[in-house]
């Protein structure tokens, strides 16, 4: 499975595959799965912090894709559409489970931890992507969701505000707290 090579050797765009899949071409749908399953799964895994749940969610996402592929208009990139669908599925899951995303005050305010002058000027050494990935998993759900949406997936605060039904200000402050918490977590690793 090397999508980069596949894409180069076969000039089949996502849009071609989507159209073929929408017309009932099962092989095209399978190819879409193989091209995108890792991105979807990684996103689910990060947001849910559980491999089993992430697989179930990935399955649900691709079933949704299968059911809705005819409604994909092609006015955005397929990946954008797919990621939105994934995010919506995960958020719906959170809502069903009663996971609170907007209210994290009980999780404490990590930014007010008093640091000694020596600690405060100490930088985290080069960020290891694996450490960072792991640290994201240790964030409380509210911080984690905003952080993943903004810093990992590239959503704007306005979009996050709409998705999570929180104010832009809340989205911004959650993001900042998430970043500061990550900084603490990464510092403590070294």
């Amino acid at each position: 499975m090397m999508p980069a090579t596949v894409e180069r050797s076969e000039p089949v765009s996502d849009l071609d595959l989507v159209r073929a899949a929408a017309a009932g071409d099962a092989a095209a749908f399978e190819q879409l799965y193989h091209l995108h399953n890792r991105r979807v799964y990684s996103l689910c895994l990060r947001m849910l912090s559980s491999g089993t749940q992430a697989e179930d969610m990935t399955q649900e996402v691709f079933l949704q894709v299968f059911r809705k592929i005819g409604s994909f208009r092609g006015d955005s990139a397929f990946t954008t559409w797919l990621h939105r669908l994934t995010v919506n599925q995960v958020l719906m899951h959170f809502r069903k489970r009663g996971v609170k995303l907007e209210h994290t005050s009980e999780e404490g305010d990590f930014t007010n931890v008093v640091e000694t002058p020596l600690q405060s000027t100490r930088r985290i050494s080069m960020v290891d992507r694996l450490d960072l990935d792991k640290a994201i998993g240790e964030l409380p759900p509210g911080y984690r969701t905003v952080f993943i949406l903004h810093d990992v997936e590239g959503y704007e605060h306005e979009e996050i505000s709409g998705l999570l039904k929180v104010s832009v200000g809340t989205s911004k402050s959650q993001l900042h707290k998430a970043r500061m918490r990550l900084r603490d977590l990464l510092k403590s690793k070294h």
């Binding site: 990060r46 960072l132 990935d133 994201i136």
Partner: peptide, 28 residues
């Protein structure tokens, strides 16, 4: 101290865009 925060946040933001991909089990 604030420069240290800035530098760390820049790193976090930068590397968050390049997180490793995870692979689901093959029977999915």
């Amino acid at each position: 101290a604030c420069r240290a925060v800035r530098d760390d946040l820049l790193q976090i933001v930068h590397f968050s865009k390049q997180l490793p991909l995870h692979i689901p089990t093959s029977d999915l």
